[in-house]
Amino acid sequence: MTASTTGGIAATTTEDGWLRIPELPQAQREAWVAEVVGELREAWGEAWDDRAELMVSTMLAETIGDRPDAHVVFEVWPFAVPARARVQISMLDAATVPDLQQLGFSLVPYDGAAAGPGLMLVRRSTEAAEDGEGVRLVDWGVLFDDGTHALLVQVDTLPLFFLQRILPGLHGLVVGLEATLPDGRPFRAVPSAHALADPDGEWSALRLRAEGLAGDDAGAR
């Protein structure tokens, strides 16, 4: 997928534990890490210990040093333990968005967002574990498309239980997401060309709701 020049993306978080990752020169990164460590130390209270001090500092140094090339990047730290999820938001050329169904994603209409009608993208997998049961993993996102530009919210692969924990914050972010085009006009999505007629679409929506991955209006047409 190819990045598209955009006038701007306005992203507002609605839950605690969301950390916006800036683009910083090398000289400013150490101070940023120290500041965020201090904020997390205060937020975790008695759950903070020497292990957290070491691991969180290391993880945040990796975060700022290896920030992905997306317009907006968040990390979500919902638990008082060294564990985070990464959320990326980018404006893309719509023509470069791949066939998502061919990549294994379930596509469910996503309604009620400021950016217009979108598609919720969900792909499941299982990673082998020592207990033999495996860990259920999910790729999750929302795509808005106006025919020329595409606004994509993408959550890096993470365990299902972790996604379920941060989902209220994800929906809060996505519903309020706004963007402007290079000429200054507001971005407004239309029903996506990737929303192909799918005889299993209603079943997919029901299954996602049962897993806590979609709201009650998902799949409504």
Rank of each mutant, 00 (worst) to 15 (best):
A27F: 02
D93P: 02
S57I: 00
P191L: 05
W203N: 07
F162M: 10
A197S: 07
T6L: 00
V81S: 14
R136Q: 13
D111Q: 02
S192W: 12
R86I: 10
G118A: 01
D69S: 06
D16A: 00
P117A: 08
D49R: 03
A114R: 01
D69T: 08
D131I: 01
S90P: 09
R86S: 10
G169I: 00
D49C: 06
Q164S: 05
L213C: 01
V122R: 01
L206A: 06
L100N: 01
A94Y: 04
A27E: 14
P78Y: 10
R165K: 14
E30L: 07
D111S: 03
L206C: 12
R165W: 14
L151I: 02
A61W: 01
M91F: 15
R136K: 10
V97G: 03
A189T: 11
D145N: 11
D93H: 14
P109W: 04
W18F: 15
M1K: 08
R20E: 04
E35I: 14
F144G: 03
V174T: 13
A193M: 04
A113M: 08
F144C: 11
L152G: 04
T180I: 04
M55V: 15
G215D: 14
I21Y: 14
E130Y: 12
G169Y: 07
R136E: 14
T63H: 07
G169W: 11
V76D: 00
L160F: 15
A61H: 10
A94P: 10
Q102E: 13
T5S: 07
P109L: 03
A115K: 06
A214I: 03
E42M: 01
G147D: 03
A3S: 12
V36Q: 04
V87W: 02
A95Y: 10
T13R: 02
Y110H: 13
A11S: 08
G45F: 12
G65L: 04
D217W: 01
A80V: 04
D183G: 10
E15M: 13
E127C: 00
D50F: 05
A189F: 13
G212H: 06
G215M: 08
G116K: 09
R51T: 14
L60T: 13
G201H: 11
A179G: 11
V153Y: 00
F162V: 06
D200P: 02
L92G: 10
F74R: 05
Q102A: 07
R124D: 06
D146Q: 09
H194M: 05
V76P: 09
G215W: 01
V138C: 12
W203G: 02
T2S: 12
E53C: 08
L170H: 01
G116T: 07
V33C: 11
R165D: 05
V190Q: 13
G7P: 02
P159A: 09
F79E: 10
L143T: 02
A129K: 00
G38V: 04
R67K: 12
G17A: 10
Q101R: 06
E53N: 13
S125V: 00
A220Q: 08
S192A: 09
L181H: 11
L40A: 14
A210W: 15
D50Y: 05
T13E: 10
L152M: 05
S57C: 03
G184M: 09
A61G: 10
W44G: 02
H194D: 06
G201C: 09
P78M: 12
T63C: 11
V33R: 15
W77I: 15
